[in-house]
Structures are given as C-alpha cells and as structure tokens.
C-alpha cells in the first residue's frame, strides 16, 4: 500500500471519528441523531461495496439489514420477555440467547450467507433486470418477516432488546464497514469488479469472471448490511416498516447524493443527507438555530431530501464527490488523458 493512497481510508474514517466525537459532546437527546447517522453510514458503505464497485443497482440491501435486525434482535431479547413480544417464536429460538458482540457477528454472518444464496442465481442479471430482481428480494424478505411469527415479532417492534449501541459501538461498526470496503476495493477482486463496471466486454475478454466478482461483492456487502442491522436493533426498537421502502429510499439517496463511485462519496453522502434529515426532523418539532426559530410541518424532511436527490441526479449524476477518492497529489507530472471515445448507445 502506498502512502499516497492512505487518505482514501483515513479521510472517511476521520469524518466518522469527528461525527462520533461531536456526538459525545452534545446533549443526550441530540446524541440520538448522531447515533442514527453513524448507523446510516454503515448501511450506505455496505451498499457502496456492491453498487459502487459493480455499477449494478440493488434495491435489495435493506433486506439484508432487516435480516441483521431480526438475527441480533431475536437472539438478544431477554428470555423472560420473548413470549410477550414474540408469541409464535420457534422453540429453539425461544431458549437461545447470546451476548451483544456475538449477536452482531451472527447478524453479519446471516446477512452474508443470505446474500450469497440469493446472489448465486441473481448475479447473472444486470441492468434493470437486476434492479427489479433485487427489489423482489426486498419484497419477499419484508413479506416473510412481517407475517412469519416463528422467526421474529412479526408486526411488533423489537421493544426489549438491550440498548447496547452507544456512540462507540456505532462508530466501531462504521469503522469496520469502511475498513472492509477499503480493503476490498484495493484488493485484486475489487479492481477486477471495477474493471467489469467500466467495460464488461473488455473485462470478460481479459479473463475476469464478472459473475464471480459480483457474487463476492454482493456477499461481502450483504454481511456489512447485516452487521449494520444488528447495530441498529441494539439502538432502537425497530419494527418491520423501519427496514423497508423508506430506508431503501433514504440510503440510496445518500449514496447517490454523495456519489456512488467512491468510498468517500458514500460516507460524505450519508453524513450530509443524514445531517440535513436530522436537522429537518428536529425542526419538525421546533428548533432554535442562532436565534432563528424553525417550526416545519411534519413530512418536510422527506420532501427536502427527495428534491435534493432529484436535483443532484439531474445536475450532477456522479454525486457530490464526483466519484473521486481523497489522495495526496502525485509527485510526477500527470500524463495527459487520452481523448475519451464515446461508446455508441
């Protein structure tokens, strides 16, 4: 690893660290927004590992987050309370309990395993077919979690999960996601997938198995999404609608606004949109900033975020970061770029 490339990892990590430190400095009620933001960073980075590197759209990652939520949630609700919120729970789940860290590891494992199984057939698809198929995965997982009471609370919220996610747990989760994403995109597997993203035909001709590389990225990002889900359920009493279309929209918006092409973009997008969203949500209940009193009607935050996402897509489709990573300037003078040839569409 060259020193010049270090900012690619350290930049996003520093942003997360700054967010965590800021979260420690503010009052307890405000801290929740920072905790939520850190979890969103994890989810968006998980999304980025697949969507950013492969260029294939996935609407299905929130399904892996939901599975992480279910895994970590079901295994950590105290045994005495399992019957109350999960009356139909299968017998072996009723008497199995694990600790905080083990539940997170299992959440990541379940997310990865499920993504691998789903990806085996699905990664043959690309473009719109992949978008619709991953959407179908989201719908199926949501439908099953909603009604199948043997594996979880169904429509009830995970109300008595121990709230072990504090600033540090949330920040460490985000660090893990960023580190994995960085290690992956610097590895030969990540490079192969990026090559396939830029030019599938040339990549295939160079001997890259596009299917295999996509599957690897899908499983990896499914694991990170599961981990993020586990961290999420230890933060809030989550119910099935919290990990469905709204979260899919919000996290995709974050990735797109930041720029899906780079790790920096994913983190910046998550922080920027989450910050804006948190501020507006707070303003919906009335907030004072520098002597100005804001009191916005409920629902404003979604409208602003939606508008922002549409505007960024139209004016700057590569996002705020423009798909670039942070890096130190090169020592040698740059070779001028060859004129780009436009591929016929």
């Amino acid at each position: 690893m060259t020193v010049r490339r270090l900012p690619e990892l350290l930049g996003p990590a520093a942003l997360v660290l700054a967010t965590a430190l800021l979260g420690l400095a503010v009052s307890v009620s405000l801290q929740n927004y920072f905790l939520d933001t850190l979890v969103k960073v994890s989810i968006v980075v998980a999304l980025y590992v697949f969507i950013g590197n492969s260029g294939v759209l996935s609407f299905g990652h929130i399904a892996f987050v939901a599975l992480g939520v279910w895994t970590a949630g079901v295994l950590t609700v105290p045994e005495s309370q399992k019957n109350a919120i999960m009356p139909g729970l299968a017998h072996f789940l009723l008497h199995t309990n694990v600790g905080n860290v083990a539940s997170l590891a299992l959440a990541a494992g379940v997310g990865m395993l499920f993504a691998l199984i789903v990806g085996l057939p699905l990664m043959r698809l690309s473009g719109l077919a992949a978008g619709i198929a991953t959407f179908a995965v989201l719908e199926i997982v949501n439908n099953l979690l909603r009604y199948w009471q043997a594996i979880g609370p169904g429509l009830n919220a995970f109300s008595s999960v121990p709230q072990t996610t504090g600033i540090w747990q949330a920040a460490i989760g985000a660090f893990i996601c960023i580190a994995v994403a960085y290690a992956y995109q610097r590895s030969r597997f990540g490079r192969q997938l990026r090559a396939a993203r830029e030019d599938p035909a040339a990549a295939a001709a160079a001997g890259i198995s596009i299917y295999g590389q996509r599957l690897l990225a899908f499983a990896l990002s499914g694991g990170l999404a599961g981990l993020a889900g586990g961290i999420y359920v230890h933060l809030l009493p989550i119910e099935v609608d919290n990990v469905y279309l709204d979260l899919t929209f919000l996290t995709l918006a974050m990735l797109v606004v930041g720029g899906a092409g780079s790790l920096l973009g994913a983190v910046v997008g998550a922080l920027a949109v989450s910050g804006l969203d948190s501020f507006l949500s707070a303003a919906e209940n009335g907030v004072d900033v520098f002597g100005w009193h804001f009191d916005l009607p409920t629902g404003t935050s979604v409208i602003v975020v939606g508008t922002l996402m549409a505007v960024v897509l139209i004016l700057r489709p590569s996002g705020l970061s423009g798909g670039r990573e942070l890096s130190l300037p090169r020592r040698r003078p740059r070779v001028p770029d060859l004129p780009k040839v436009r591929a016929p569409t």
């Binding site: 294939v56 759209l57 995709l252 549409a310």
Partner: peptide, 9 residues
C-alpha cells in the same frame, strides 16, 4: 439505473 433512482426519488 440513474433514471430509475431519480423517478424513485
């Protein structure tokens, strides 16, 4: 894909 995400928004 970009257009799909935009109409999603």
């Amino acid at each position: 894909a970009v257009m799909l995400v935009a109409t999603f928004a």
